[in-house]
């Protein structure tokens, strides 16, 4: 079926098998391989992208469901210069093998947006107050993104620094 995906500001017209996931459309059809496939079952978060302003596991979503949607992948976060969040990941060694990293970064972006909108989490003190980006909030909200190299200290430091700087 014919699908239009607006990825990182560019429109792509694709003719896809209805079974193609958003993740495979990005990786195999648009050659945007920055988004990673870790489990294909929504269990690891490596495939996280921003779709319609929200972070989602792109492996759990069919491309056909995103006709006309605005999608942001890791490739869309920087041109020649890295974004502040990406630079902070490098500075704090928030990666080792790097395979979960694009998902961590896209997830962090989405998560910081949720924080600024006041969405509560399991560790928030109130359900309706503003939420501050503490280490505890970040750790809780980033727990859908697995990192087997276990770079959580660097990931949290990078996100915290970025949140405090913005």
């Amino acid at each position: 079926m014919k699908v239009t995906l607006n990825v990182n500001g560019a429109s792509h017209w694709l003719d896809l098998d209805t079974r193609v996931t958003l993740l495979d459309a990005l990786r195999d059809h648009l050659k945007l391989t920055g988004t990673k496939k870790g489990c294909d079952h929504g269990q690891c978060g490596a495939c996280t992208v921003i779709a319609g302003g929200r972070r989602i596991n792109s492996c759990l979503s069919l491309a056909a469901l995103h006709d006309g949607d605005e999608i942001t992948t890791v490739e869309g976060l920087s041109d020649d210069e890295l974004s502040d969040l990406q630079s902070a990941f490098v500075a704090h060694d928030g990666m080792q093998c790097g395979y979960c990293t694009p998902g961590q970064i896209c997830s962090a972006l989405g998560m910081l947006g949720e924080l600024s909108e006041g969405w509560p989490s399991h560790v928030s003190e109130t359900l309706d107050g503003p939420v501050r980006p503490t280490r505890e909030e970040i750790a809780e909200r980033m727990s859908g993104n697995l990192c087997r190299c276990s770079c959580y200290p660097g990931i949290n430091a990078a996100i915290l620094e970025t949140a405090e700087g913005s």
């Binding site: 391989t33 060694d93 790097g98």
Partner: peptide, 21 residues
């Protein structure tokens, strides 16, 4: 020292085995 491969990894430009299609 920061990893020289860090900028490639945070921007999705480091290519892994399945990505040389």
């Amino acid at each position: 020292a920061a990893r020289p491969d860090g900028p490639l990894k945070v921007s999705g430009r480091a290519a892994y085995a399945a990505e040389y299609l």
